[in-house]
Nucleic acid binder design. Structure first.
Length: 584
RNA sequence: GCGCCCGUAGCUCAGCCGGAUAGAGCAACGGCCUUCUAAGCCGUGGGUCGUAGGUUCAAGUCCUACCGGGCGCGCCA
């Protein structure tokens, strides 16, 4: 409908150009907005205000000329000039209600569009290090990423969801040694656990598996493990140096092959757990991309940068000249010990992403990575790829509250609240919904009590309840053995004459726009707010007017209206990974 | 110190790439269940949009400076 108004305005502009009111080369951007106030009609344009200078006329005068030049259209009942020079459009009743027919006919397809034109777009999200279970901080990235991906798909993009598995780094070797130490404890050794080791309960579970698989074959006495190591942090030493030495000792004692088995056992156990967790959270990926698999491409990527002259040697290390692209300082890609950095892997990974042919790449990162954006974009640009094809969205942390009590979390100590615990406590639906009710870059307070509450305080239940209400009303209709509308046409809808009904229809007409906008701006919270409002209007309507009235024609019309509302709620919740229950 | 994000009702937040009188929910107060689920609805009060300038027909929205809060500034990943 909006497009139609814009078309009308467009032809008015051409007409005014012909009559000389506008210069022939004038091509204004025509914006049509939904009127905020019903008194202002259905749509409004500021065209006259924007163009008054060019036309050399007062805005209201120009508005009059524009209206005179508008072709007539059956859907438009009236136009008016308002305020400083807005042109307001009023639609006739039938055009309002038409949307109900569209929704019912299109069903689950209603709201989908092709604006993405099948462009290939990759969304990389979560990508948490496989060193432990996902915690509530990852949950927000998961919920946000999944909703963004689904939204993009809904508006016609070819979406590829990917999880980058950091399975190559030092952290993973620390994980392996943590498992091994717990294994030694299970074998009866007693030793003090390193300050920098992973202390979670899950490590012990993995150690039990290790014991089951390998018996005592990996057992070494404490003395041989700890002899001649530098001091750990509690003894005044450096925890990093200590843990690295411990890793080396472990490799030496058990041998590289066995170390690799411990490593893989830990990796697979944790990754399996993460997959299961995400799957239960309704978050699925097309691909789990291993950092190890890209290692062979790292030197290749660095070679390209070198050939382009962006690398140099200093103090034994190799540096990337990221300052050429606006970074604060140059970055090391190969350390003086010859090993490439994590950043180097990331350069290769991003090169690989674009080599795979994605038109656009979206990275969803935790807020703590924001210092990393410039250098990755710099690398992309240095490799000759348009950096605007890479969009990076940061997700701020969620702070958990239980009522007014703030819950703390810390990965290393193992005392964090896991995503699984959250899901078990508040449920998948509430968790998915709550995480995306705020803009991603907005800090968020996540109140467990509110998410669990079964009342109107809780927006998830509020929206789901609107859906369930329609379902139970339909069940009653069936028990009355009354006819349910099989098809909807303008005659069916004609009895809908109430203001509330018109409002609901107008609100539903906005749904496709809301989707398009939420997708384009990567902001699922726009959809949550829309659904909250739609559900609210429906509750108001439902409370004030009976749907299952005796008059069969009015009943049929109101049932059609309710069906349409239910459909949009179901469609919208689906995109957020939230279920739409038939009864509650 | 530098960079990014944020500052809107007592609280949590919207505010549609500048538009008409700034909106919800919660909390507070007052009403509504023999009628399709009260997990709901109706009503009342509540604001110098952090501060000061600037841009223009029009600024919560854009620009500049400052104030306040968060995060990040490794040859870690």
């Amino acid at each position: 409908m909006k497009e139609k108004i814009a078309e009308l305005l467009n032809s008015a502009v051409s007409h005014l150009k012909e009559t000389g009111a506008f210069p022939a080369d004038y091509n204004p951007e025509i914006t049509v907005e939904n009127a905020r106030d019903k008194a202002h009609g259905d749509f409004a344009t500021n065209l006259a205000l924007k163009s008054s200078k060019v036309a050399g006329m007062k805005p209201r005068e120009l508005a009059e000329r524009i209206i005179e030049s508008l072709p007539s259209d059956p859907a438009v009942r009236d136009t008016e000039i308002a305020g400083p020079g807005f042109i307001n459009f009023f639609l006739n009743e039938a055009s309002h209600l038409e949307i109900i027919r569209e929704v019912v006919e299109q069903g689950t397809d209603f709201g989908l569009s092709r604006q993405g034109q099948g462009q290939r777009i990759q969304v990389e999200f979560v990508s948490a290090n496989p060193t432990g279970p996902l915690h509530v901080g990852h949950g927000r990235g998961a919920a946000y990423g999944a909703s963004v991906a689904d939204l993009l798909e809904a508006v016609g993009y070819d979406v590829h969801r990917e999880y980058y598995v950091n399975d190559a780094g030092r952290q993973m070797t620390i994980l392996a040694v943590s498992v091994w130490l717990r294994y030694l404890e299970l074998q009866g050794e007693s030793l003090s656990f390193p300050a920098n080791g992973y202390r979670g309960e899950y490590i012990i579970d993995i150690a039990r598996q290790l014991q089951k698989d390998h018996g005592d074959k990996l057992h070494h006495p404490t003395a041989s493990v700890l002899s001649d190591l530098p001091p750990d942090e509690p003894d005044g030493g450096d925890k990093e140096t200590y843990i690295d030495a411990l890793v080396e000792r472990c490799r030496k004692l058990v041998g590289e092959a066995a170390f690799a088995r411990i490593f893989d056992l830990g990796l697979n156990a944790i990754l399996g757990d993460i997959r299961q967790d995400l799957s239960a959270f309704n978050v699925d990926f097309q691909q789990w991309f291993s950092e190890r698999s890209i290692q062979t491409n790292v030197s290749e990527a660095l070679k390209i940068l070198d050939e382009k002259g962006y690398l140099y040697e200093q103090e034994g290390a190799t540096w990337f000249r990221s300052t050429d692209f606006g970074d604060d300082k140059d970055r090391v890609v190969r350390r003086d010990n010859g090993e490439t950095t994590y950043f180097a892997s990331d350069i290769a990974y991003h090169l690989n992403k674009f080599d795979r042919g994605f038109d656009r790449v979206i990275n969803i990162w935790g807020a703590d990575h924001h210092g990393y954006i410039t250098r990755v974009k710099a690398a992309i640009e240095a490799l000759g790829i348009d950096p605007t094809r890479l969009e990076i969205r940061l997700v701020q942390f969620a702070i958990l509250y239980r009522g007014s009590e703030r819950l703390s979390m810390s990965t290393r100590s193992g005392s964090f609240v896991t995503l699984r615990e959250l899901r078990e406590e508040v449920g998948k639906d509430a968790a998915r919904f709550f995480y995306v009710t705020r803009k991603a870059e907005q800090h968020m307070d996540f109140d467990l009590e509110l998410a669990k509450s079964e009342s109107k305080d809780n927006p998830v239940y509020y929206i789901q309840y609107a859906h369930a209400r329609v379902c139970s009303m339909l069940a009653k209709l069936r028990s009355m053995e009354a006819s349910q509308p099989t098809s909807v046409n303008s005659d069916t809808l004609a009895p809908l004459t109430l203001e509330d009904e018109k409002d609901l229809a107008a609100m539903m007409a906005r749904y496709p726009e809301v989707l398009a906008r939420a997708a384009e701006q990567l902001e699922p919270h726009q959809l949550t707010h829309y659904l909250r409002e739609l559900a609210g209007r429906f509750h108001t309507y439902y409370n004030a007017h009976k749907v299952l009235v005796d008059d069969p024609e009015l009943r049929e019309a109101r049932v059609a209206l309710s069906l349409a509302v239910r459909q949009i709620i179901a469609n919208g919740l689906g995109l957020l990974g939230v279920s739409a229950p038939e009864s509650m």
